[in-house]
């Protein structure tokens, strides 16, 4: 049984009144508005012990990268340029089949944004080539589907543990493209059409499992070649993590089916190519990623329950997870 601490909340005398500008609102509104006020509440939380935050998601045949940082007190000064508090002197070990591997600290520049293009904004929008220097722990082992890994990290007197089994991939059966039938927006007529990549895969879905559909599209016309990308990449997009859970539409997933909608421009009426793969995530990984998205979506509303991050790190925060991707399948759709 957990012992709950009822923290005291102290009100600082500072007050600000909400403004209301409608000159014709009556006395009642004035009363409510000017009585209704905001106050800054100071929390008497005692001390906050920062936690180790782990992000290590394994993928078959890829060197592992374990990012390690620490959390801070919520009400500390926020320096947004330095939000990642990396820890580079921890002892990080992975154990596979009774073999203990000590990971070494390393660093690299990684893209600031995961997706280089925002697909829904169209080609070329929000191109973010910025990179950022990040620190991680790594080794030259290559995880295989079915491998069981135990993670142990110690940093000073803090110790966190976790474990994961790398899942087996699923195979794509077929891909169909469907076009939106909704009335076109009169202000953008002939400009955008939504395409759905309906992807069927050979799997009986377990509701507790998580999948992710990943699409990568490119043009073959030279005029559209992104000179900085030898793969002629025009977009890379993945659906949110989905399963019989919050973000998924259960009926669509149960039968081994995922879809991803995206827009294309009508300017060029050529056939287009897209690479599609399905990633199967461990339940803990899916739940964690899902909770991050949900927390972000709901954090600004004072009237909804906050979403807690579903961590699987014993003694800390974050995720030690794994996923496997299917073989990529190429699909062709036509701009109508």
């Amino acid at each position: 049984m957990l012992n709950f601490i009822n923290y005291n909340i102290r009100i600082r005398s500072e007050q600000t009144f909400t403004g209301f500008g409608h000159r014709f609102l009556l006395f009642i509104i004035v009363i409510i508005t000017f009585n209704g006020c905001q106050q800054i509440v100071e929390m008497d939380l005692g001390s906050y012990d920062s936690k180790l935050v782990v992000n290590g998601i394994l993928k078959p045949d890829t060197f592992p990268r374990i990012y390690l940082s620490e959390s801070t007190f919520f009400y500390d000064i926020d320096d947004y340029r330095n939000r990642f508090h990396f820890i580079t002197n921890a002892v990080v070990t992975l154990k596979r089949n009774d073999t203990k591997i000590f990971l070494k600290s390393d660093s690299a520049y990684e893209p600031l944004n995961k997706n280089r293009y925002n697909m829904n904004s169209g080609f070329g929008d929000e191109y973010k080539p910025d990179t950022v220097l990040v620190y991680f722990y790594t080794d030259t082992i290559r995880p295989k589907p079915g491998d069981y890994f135990e993670l142990e990290i110690t940093s000073g007197n803090r110790r966190v543990t976790s474990a994961v089994t790398v899942p087996f991939p699923v195979e794509i059966d077929s891909v169909k493209f469907a076009y939106s039938e909704r009335p076109k927006d009169p202000y953008n007529e002939g400009f955008q059409t939504e395409v759905y990549a309906e992807t069927y895969f050979k799997e009986t879905i377990n509701k507790d499992e998580y999948y992710r559909l990943k699409l990568t599209g490119w043009y073959k016309e030279p005029s559209y070649i992104d000179p900085s990308d030898s793969n002629l990449l025009t977009f890379s997009h993945s659906t949110d993590v989905t399963a019989g859970n919050i973000l998924g539409d259960i009926n669509k997933v149960i039968n081994g089916y995922l879809e991803c909608g995206f827009y294309y421009e009508n300017a060029s009426k050529n056939k287009k190519h897209v690479r599609i793969s399905i990633e199967r995530l461990t339940e803990e990984t899916g739940r964690y990623l899902e909770s991050l998205v949900l927390q972000r979506e709901h954090e600004d509303s004072p009237f909804t329950e906050p979403v807690m991050v579903k961590s699987n790190i014993e003694g800390g925060l974050g995720v030690f997870g794994a996923y496997s991707a299917s073989k990529e399948m190429e699909g062709i759709y036509y701009c109508k």
């Binding site: 929390m43 939380l45 906050y48 920062s50 936690k51 935050v53 992000n55 998601i57 990012y67 940082s69 620490e70 959390s71 801070t72 007190f73 919520f74 500390d76 926020d78 947004y80 340029r81 939000r83 990642f84 508090h85 990684e110 893209p111 600031l112 944004n113 995961k114 997706n115 950022v132 990040v134 964690y288 990623l289 991050l292 998205v293 927390q295 972000r296 954090e299 329950e305 906050p306 807690m308 991050v309 925060l317 974050g318 995720v319």
Partner: peptide, 25 residues
């Protein structure tokens, strides 16, 4: 009420500090 006590960063959806910051409730 449920209130956040800590903040942490996670790179699962990118390294952009604006979008990689989460609450520890």
């Amino acid at each position: 009420v449920t209130l956040p006590v800590g903040r942490f960063s996670d790179p699962s959806y990118g390294w952009d500090p604006y979008f990689s910051w989460y609450s520890d409730y």
